[in-house]
């Protein structure tokens, strides 16, 4: 059974990675078709950096991802602290609202925002309201729940006495926040921000409904491209992005593993200490 499970999981991983391998191989192809490999070349990588049509689009995606995840992190962390201080009933109400963008299909979120902007556009008599601002607003909106859902659990895990102690020792509420509270909830803030950043960077569906022709992000342009034949340099970009994300993930894993090892060692030391006292 164990042997079967191992092989099966291997097959699942293979299934998940085959298309990515196909794209990586295509990035070294001299021909333009993904289906047939004609010869090895690094030309696509040179082309990617030389002609500069894709990199500005990637920069646009990065700008939106950084700004929206930053705004969502600040707004969301503040909100999480407010929600934490709320009574049961209003907390439940706010959390229901937080869950709306998470449970609604993306296309509905995209359409509803597009209609809102169209509505505002007719009120303000602006024809081309869609652009950078609408894109940023949409991204902040779908990023906020990720931040809140990863910060609120950290706040409930925190010992409330810590903040009380800081206040008793003469901290202003603001000092208590940046000297005590933020250290306790930082892992939640960071993972929320990272999640928001990745969601925003790779978002296509919602962006597709609220982008304007003056500010296009990479996923949207890939979609617009696919109506015509794709230029292979896009596979080169995909492969490079894959390597970057892989490196970031491995680094995060190693850091996390080291952290847990430290914690486990501390715990063991503590337990050992207690046992010797008992003896």
């Amino acid at each position: 059974m164990k042997w079967f499970n191992k092989g099966f999981t291997g097959l699942v991983l293979l299934f998940l990675y085959i298309p990515m391998i196909v794209l990586a191989v295509a990035s070294f192809n001299t021909g333009t078709s993904v289906s047939s490999f004609q010869g090895f070349t690094l030309e696509q990588y040179g082309e990617l950096f030389r002609d500069g049509t894709l990199l500005p689009l990637l920069a646009n995606s990065l700008i939106v991802a950084v700004l929206s995840s930053l705004c969502a992190t600040v707004l969301g962390t503040a909100a999480a602290m407010g929600i934490h201080a709320m009574g049961q009933r209003s907390r439940r109400l706010v959390m229901t609202m937080t869950n709306i963008p998470m449970t609604n299909p993306e296309i509905v979120t995209g359409v509803s925002l597009a209609l809102l902007f169209a509505f505002i556009g007719t009120l303000m008599k602006v024809n081309d309201i869609l652009g950078f601002t609408t894109l940023l607003i949409a991204h902040i909106t779908f990023n906020l729940p990720y931040v809140i859902l990863s910060v609120t659990p950290k706040l409930s895990q925190m010992d409330p006495n810590l903040r009380e102690a800081a206040l008793d020792l003469g901290c202003t509420p603001f000092q208590a926040f940046y000297k005590v509270v933020i250290h306790e909830i930082l892992p939640g803030i960071i993972s929320g921000a990272l999640m928001a950043f990745t969601m925003s960077l790779d978002d296509f569906v919602i962006s597709y409904f609220v982008y304007g022709p003056r500010f296009v992000t990479l996923p949207v342009e890939i979609y617009n491209y696919t109506k015509k034949p794709l230029h292979p340099k896009i596979y080169a970009l995909f492969t490079l992005l894959f390597l970057v994300i892989l490196l970031v993930m491995v680094a995060m894993n190693l850091l996390q593993a080291r952290d847990e090892k430290h914690k486990a060692a501390a715990k063991r030391a503590l337990r050992g200490g207690r046992r010797s006292v008992q003896v």
């Binding site: 707004l75 969301g76 503040a78 909100a79 999480a80 602290m81 407010g82 929600i83 201080a85 709320m86 209003s90 706010v94 609202m97 937080t98 709306i100 963008p101 509905v108 979120t109 359409v111 509803s112 925002l113 209609l115 809102l116 509505f119 607003i137 949409a138 902040i140 909106t141 906020l144 809140i148 509420p173």
Partner: peptide
Amino acid sequence: STWLSGPYILWMAIFTIIPLGVV
């Protein structure tokens, strides 16, 4: 400190609840 969630609630009302009403 419940007021801290004020901006968020306002944001979500404008960009989540109202858009659904517009739909």
